[in-house]
Amino acid sequence: MGKIDGKPSYLIIHPLDDLPEVKRTVMPGMGPMKLTMTARISLLALRAYLIVMLVLVTYRVFTMATSR
């Protein structure tokens, strides 16, 4: 906030016109996120679930396609 002729004035800048700001980026050496053992096992289980489900869905869609 500034003042013009004693009155308050506000400068509004569109984000695309503003100077870029420093963001919270992944620093070199930070690597993948540190996870607890439980989270790691849960993600492995999720990976297995997703692979099985995708195979089943693909199989089902192909079955439907060939039986048309």
């Binding site: 009155k7 308050p8 004035s9 506000y10 400068l11 509004i12 800048i13 503003d18």
Partner: peptide, 9 residues
């Protein structure tokens, strides 16, 4: 950067 200056909050 350029912008718009206004006096009303």
């Amino acid at each position: 950067p350029t912008g718009i200056t206004v006096s009303s909050n």
